[in-house]
Write a protein that binds this DNA or RNA. Structure first.
Length: 465
RNA sequence: GCCCCCAUCGUCCAGCGGCCUAGGACGCCUGCCUUUCACGCAGGUAACACGGGUUCAAAUCCCGUUGGGGGUACCA
């Protein structure tokens, strides 16, 4: 094997991929690409309950969406159990592991009876118990010395061996635990750098102990990434936090923007240019520059980055990316009202204003919907607080009845009405016709809406005053 | 409880002993542009957790305190 960098992304298939895992995958990928190395995808399904096919797509789908490709795998730990069993066997034979028939409850009782703090305390260590039903195998963790992790991000981290109890490496159902699988696979797959979340830092000495006990030689280099946290500064949780990558995709975020934002969580380019092509991120990325402190995933920032990516699209791409949201089943307007031609005329103005493609509907709903609803704030600001509104609306209605129904004329007409009255006429008209006091330029939309419908809305508003 | 990690604007990142009266981005606020909004442009608000050292010099190094987080399973 060459001296190429080999990293791995090794998620447990526990449902949808969340942004924390995606960030780990991304940093592994960036490092692999930056160094011209290899990214291995490994599914850690050592637990019987995790071996479910539908969970695999939940991992690979989002990775592909983000554009994170892997070079080897996916490998499934559930298909490699023989290797783990052999390793466990080797440890038992060499006296570095032993059988134990104590249940968790029994362990707790023993602790209490002997006045010991909670923990295992090697109760069965020297009993020479045989294998049997309900028996587990525990690793004989060294009692003295320290296990040192030279972490690329955190520096030297020391664990006193005395603090590490004899942990289970084979469960009572005969399956091997994740720690052995981890050591065996990282060794077998020639992993040179283990890049993962900081929540794994505490288990690292256990894996290192196994690694040494199995005679694997030098361990990989470790790099523990800062955690992604929620507003309460707690590790992101699937249950409590809004973290599904698929959900962000559904909400219309672009994968490039998501990737860009994720890359900025725990890392920053030396030149402080944040929004940039992935090729440049790869070029500039390095594990050495990864931050130590936990980072909060701020959707506001994502919105801003996404908006920048959207604005940078060429018009046709923007239109085709927005199209699914405009023709979805849940649009605010009846499907039959939608016109791709009309949208195409309004698209460039919409593109400048949306944060995501999904937002597109908010800017054109008034054109395609039969009726509008007035936004409360807009009504207050654009109608209640504006002056001469009845006069403006009446004036516009009168002239709209007969003027050319063409964008420039409509703009001039509204302006003229305002000028004649010495008032600002656009906002009241805008609220009357769209329901809001902000949005794309009115005129092309009005052309599409039609003279009749426009006048109906202006009169309806006048009627409400 | 025990073990481990972390600590610069509200948020994300820069700073790796002097260039820092701490820089950029997002957010927020103001102005310009524009008879809407947005974009763009010009400004503004806002941070080195605290206490001791070390040093001619500390946001940067060391120790402690406080605060936050992670781990403590026959989950990964």
């Amino acid at each position: 094997m060459s001296n190429k960098t080999r990293v791995r992304f090794a998620p447990a298939p526990t449902g949808f991929l969340h942004i924390g895992s995606a960030r780990s995958a991304l940093f592994n990928w960036l490092y692999a690409r930056h160094t011209g190395g290899v990214l291995v995808l490994r599914i850690e399904d050592t637990n019987e309950a995790l071996k479910r096919d539908e969970f695999i797509d939940a991992i690979t789908g989002p990775l592909q969406w983000l554009g994170l490709d892997w070079d080897e795998g996916p490998f499934f730990q559930s298909e490699r159990t023989q290797l783990y069993s052999e390793a466990v066997e080797q440890l038992v034979e060499s006296g570095q592991a032993y059988y134990c028939d104590l249940s968790r409850e029994q362990v707790n009782e023993l602790c209490e009876a002997q006045g010991l703090p909670a923990g295992y305390h090697g109760f069965s260590r020297d009993k020479g118990l045989p294998d049997g039903e309900g028996t587990v195998i525990r690793f004989r963790a060294p009692d003295e010395g320290t296990t040192v992790i030279d972490d690329v991000i955190r520096g030297r981290v020391e664990f006193e061996n005395a603090h590490i109890e004899d942990f289970v490496i084979r469960r009572s159902d005969g399956s091997s635990g994740f720690l052995v699988a981890n050591a065996v696979d990282d060794h077998d797959m020639g992993i040179t750098h283990v890049v993962r979340g900081e929540d794994m830092l505490s288990t690292t000495p256990k894996v290192v102990m196994l690694w040494q006990a199995l005679g694997f030689g030098d361990t990989p280099t470790y790099a523990h990434l800062p955690l992604l946290v929620n507003e309460q500064r707690k590790k992101l949780s699937k249950r409590k936090d809004d973290v599904s990558l698929g959900e962000f995709r559904r909400r219309g975020y672009m994968p490039e923007a998501m990737l860009n934002h994720l890359a900025l969580l725990g890392w920053g380019p030396p030149d402080e240019v944040e929004v940039r092509p992935v090729a440049e991120i790869i070029e500039l990325f390095d594990l050495e520059n990864v931050t130590k402190g936990a980072a909060f995933f701020d959707v506001k920032k994502l919105d801003s980055i996404n908006a920048e990516y959207v604005r940078a699209q060429d018009l046709d791409t923007f239109i085709s990316d927005a199209e699914p949201y405009l023709t979805a089943a849940d649009t605010p307007w009846p499907a039959k009202n939608y016109s791709a031609e009309v949208f195409a005329r309004l698209a460039s103005e919409v593109q400048q204003r949306v944060a995501t493609h999904a937002d597109t509907t908010d800017f054109v709903d008034w054109v395609f919907n039969d009726e509008i609803s007035y936004d409360e704030k807009s009504w207050a600001k654009g109608i209640v607080k504006a002056k001469l509104v009845p006069e403006i609306l009446a004036g516009v209605i009168e002239r709209f009845a007969t003027c050319d129904w063409e964008a420039e004329t409509l703009a001039d007409t509204v302006r003229a009405v305002g000028d004649d009255l010495g008032a600002r006429s656009q906002v009241p008209v805008r609220v009357a016709v769209t329901g809001r006091n902000f949005g794309i330029p009115l005129w092309d939309g009005l052309v599409a809406l039609g003279r009749e419908q426009t006048i109906v809305r202006l009169q309806a508003t006048l009627g409400r005053l």
